[in-house]
Simulated scan of single mutants.
Amino acid sequence: MAKPDISRVTLVGAGVAGLTIATELVSRGIIPQIIDRAPEPGPQSCSWWAGGMLAPYCESESAEEPVVRLGSKAADWWQKHTQLVHRKGTLVLAMPRDRAELRRFAQLTSAFQPVNEAQINALEPDLENRFTQGLYYADEAHLAPRHAIQTLRQQLAEKGVHFTVDDADIKALATEGTVIDCRGTKARPDVQGLRGVKGEMLILKCPELQFQRPIRLLHPRIPLYIVPRGDGVFMLGATQIESAASSHPT
Rank of each mutant, 00 (worst) to 15 (best):
E24Y: 04
A106W: 13
L54V: 13
S62Q: 10
M235R: 07
N116S: 13
V197L: 14
H219I: 14
L224V: 10
S243M: 07
G42H: 01
N121V: 12
V191L: 14
G29L: 12
P114K: 06
P189Q: 06
A122T: 13
R213C: 05
A118G: 04
L108A: 14
V68F: 11
E176D: 15
I180A: 08
W48E: 00
E64N: 13
H219K: 11
A63E: 14
A2P: 12
A100P: 06
P43Y: 05
E208G: 05
P228F: 09
A245M: 01
A187P: 06
I180S: 09
I180D: 12
P214I: 02
Y225L: 05
S27F: 08
I34W: 04
T151L: 04
R130C: 12
R99T: 12
P220K: 07
E158G: 00
T23N: 03
R229C: 06
A238M: 12
P39S: 09
D139N: 11
G160A: 04
T151E: 08
D166F: 10
C182L: 07
V26C: 11
H81M: 04
P145T: 10
V191R: 13
T151F: 05
L91T: 07
T90V: 11
R103A: 15
D98P: 03
L123A: 04
A118V: 02
P56E: 10
V161H: 03
Y57V: 02
P66V: 08
K198Y: 15
P66Y: 14
A168N: 13
Q33C: 09
R229L: 15
Y137T: 01
M235K: 06
E64Y: 13
G71F: 13
F234S: 08
K186G: 11
D166L: 04
G42T: 00
G134A: 02
G71Q: 09
Q155Y: 03
G184E: 04
G196K: 14
R130S: 12
P114E: 06
E208P: 02
G196R: 11
V85G: 00
G51P: 02
P114M: 07
D190F: 15
L217D: 03
R146Q: 12
L135Q: 05
E101A: 08
R97N: 12
A38G: 07
P223F: 04
W49C: 00
E176H: 15
A168K: 09
A118Y: 01
R37E: 14
A74E: 04
G196H: 14
Y136R: 03
L143A: 03
S246M: 08
H162V: 15
Q155E: 01
Q154A: 15
T250L: 06
A74I: 05
A157E: 08
Y137D: 01
L93T: 06
A55N: 09
P41N: 01
D98R: 01
L152N: 02
H147V: 13
P223A: 10
K198R: 15
Y57L: 02
S62Y: 15
A141Q: 01
S27A: 15
Q79C: 00
V68C: 11
A187T: 11
S7L: 01
R130F: 10
L217M: 13
A244Y: 09
M1L: 05
I226F: 04
D98E: 15
E59N: 09
L70Q: 14
L143S: 00
A157V: 07
A94G: 07
M1W: 10
Y57D: 05
S246W: 03
R188E: 08
K159A: 03
M235E: 10
P125F: 09
L91N: 09
